[in-house]
Amino acid sequence: MSTTLRDILDKLLGRQPASAKTARDRLQLVLAHDRSDLSPELLDQMRREIFEVVAKYVEIDLDEGEVSLETEDRMTALVANLPIKRSKAKKLSNGQASPPPPKQEASTLAAKEQETPPPTEEQKSAPPAEETE
């Protein structure tokens, strides 16, 4: 996100930001849901089930975890961001296993945790959008 003089002025004066940005943000959210045709209940159920599956393999921070729909170029992606507290793969075959890292982003998990079963927490139908709210 970029900042303009106006943004600063709005903040200083405690004014509402320009409505075009609000319109854009609201549209992006509502279109992601429209396009996926998923009801909030179904999305919630899916979120819980994804958490359950992931929790089998790693200890995740449930409060910080987030599963959401993001959309870019008419492609909707399911983006999961599940911070990991600790890996549950205690018995590593070779002795030189490093202690599990304290907390890491789901997106970097695949590369770093090669000893654990393949993580399933990040599912995408499209390249992920960078920004998460």
């Binding site: 106006r6 320009a18 409505s19 075009a20 940005k21 319109a23 854009r24 549209l27 992006q28 279109l31 170029d73 008419r74």
Partner: peptide
Amino acid sequence: MMANQEMLAADDVTDILA
């Protein structure tokens, strides 16, 4: 309104609708 950012810009709409 567009200049004042009180209306969605053309780029916003083309980006959203692709």
